[in-house]
Amino acid sequence: MSAVTRTDAGRDLEAARQQAILAALFAADRAGALAAVSGARIRGSSGALAAGLGAYRGNGLAIAERALQATYPATFDLLGESASSAAAHLWRAEPPRSGDLADWGGGFADWLAAQPSLADWPQLAGCARIEWACHRAARAADAAMDVGSLALLGTHAAESLRLRLKPDVVVVRGAAGFHRTWLDASGREASAGPGAAAPSSPDDRLEHADGVQPTSSTEAVVVWREAFAPRVEPLAPAWAEWLDSALAGDALPLLLAGSPEPDLETTLAKLISRGWLLDILTTEDPA
């Protein structure tokens, strides 16, 4: 056998061993974990193997729970005692793909939404979607608005322009009441979003936020970062659709046609006042 072949074979053996150990760590149960790791040539008694396996699997679950609780504090509170088992299920169903645990857990809302036992509580998955959006917004790249790019509005035809929003801005949709569920669970007060009159008191603010789409089966919020803190506001349906269009990079005429405000100036003023606008580009500029 050549040296090269021996080296490749050795690497393949190590790759297989590592695969077996990771399969054991993410196995659904202990029996499956022991079966997965049986070919990894672990030294010592079966008791030593089991003790090590317990340590590694236990550490994984503890890490999963801590990571998920940090990202989804309100959803965890709502889940109560079942939060730990939810974290364990997600850990095994959707293992991390990155060495930065802050990247893990984005599938939690979909996983909650798929649970038959939670079918009559759709606001829970929506609450998780808000928290994931907040998590992402908190980590998004810093971006200051390019005030100079507004000059393009005076030098270019609308057909050749588009808006770009900051990387932390995202629209989140959920079952009616999901924003309120998140507010209650996170102990926050509602703030009014675009398309809504200014509330006059804290109580009015709550009623107002809940009342943005009182007859719809779904509702939307916008999440973005202000300084270092994620913010969440309810969105009127017209604004939600318009922000989706802007985030998709639609050209200005399309945005004007669907504008939630009577004119572009008012729309731009709201975008700028909220800190959502990054810049204005020509359609020839790279995205």
Partner: peptide, 15 residues
């Protein structure tokens, strides 16, 4: 990091 059996994209054990 290693792909789980039957997969090609590695998972990360976070350990």
């Amino acid at each position: 990091r290693a792909p789980l059996p039957g997969e090609t994209v590695p998972v990360h054990g976070a350990d």
